[in-house]
Amino acid sequence: MNIFRLAGDMTHLMSVLVLLLKIHTIKSCAGISLKTQELYALVFATRYLDIFTDFISVYNTIMKLIFLGSSFSIVWYMRRHKLVRRSYDKEQDTFRHFFLVLPCLLLALVMNEKFTFKEVMWAFSLYLEAVAILPQLVLLQRTKNIDNLTGQYVFLLGAYRAFYIFNWIYRYFTEPHYVHWITWISGLVQTLLYADFFYYYFNSWKNNVKLHLPA
C-alpha cells in the first residue's frame, strides 16, 4: 500500500459516501444520474466476485463491503425512497445502460487475462467503470446546472482517478511483476472522460458566477 493508492481509495470512498449521506440528509438526488449509479453498482458487483473466495486483507474486504453496500443503497434511495425519487430528473436521464453494458461485455469476452467467468467479469467491470460516468455527463450537459452535490461528487471521483494513476506509476517502478494493461488502459480512458467532465463543470460554474454578477 502506497500513499497514492490510499489517497485514491479514500477519495473514492468519500465520493460514494458523500453522495449517499447527502441524498439521505437533504432527501434529494437532483442532477444525479440513476443510470450511472446503477452502472457503478454493477461494476462493484462484478468486480468483487472474489470477496468470499480470495482473502487479501481486512482492509480490502471491508472496503469492498462498503462500496457494495453504499452503491446499492444509492440506487435504492433513487428508485424506492418516496421523497428522493421525486427529485430525480427522470425525463433528462435517458441514456440506455444497454449501449454501455453490451460493448463492455463483448470486449471482456475478447480481452481478458484468462477466459474464466471470474476473469471475464473482472475485465468487464474495469471496462464498464471507465464509461459508467457517461450518462451523468449527458445529464449534466442537458440540465446545464451543477449544484454543490454534483460538484463535490465529481471532484472526489476525479481525485480518485488521478491518485490511482500515480499509484500505478509508483507500483510499476517499485514492484517488478506489476504490469497490468487492462487496468491501465481502461483507467486512462476513464480519467480522460473525467477531464471532459471537469471541463463542463468549470464552464458551468464560471457561467453561473457571471449570471449572478450585478448589472
Binding site: 472496503m63 507500483r171 517499485t174 506489476y178
Partner: peptide, 10 residues
C-alpha cells in the same frame, strides 16, 4: 511484489 499482488486493488 508477486504477480498475485495485481488484484489487491479496489
Amino acid at each position: 511484489g508477486s504477480p498475485d499482488s495485481v488484484k489487491d486493488e479496489l
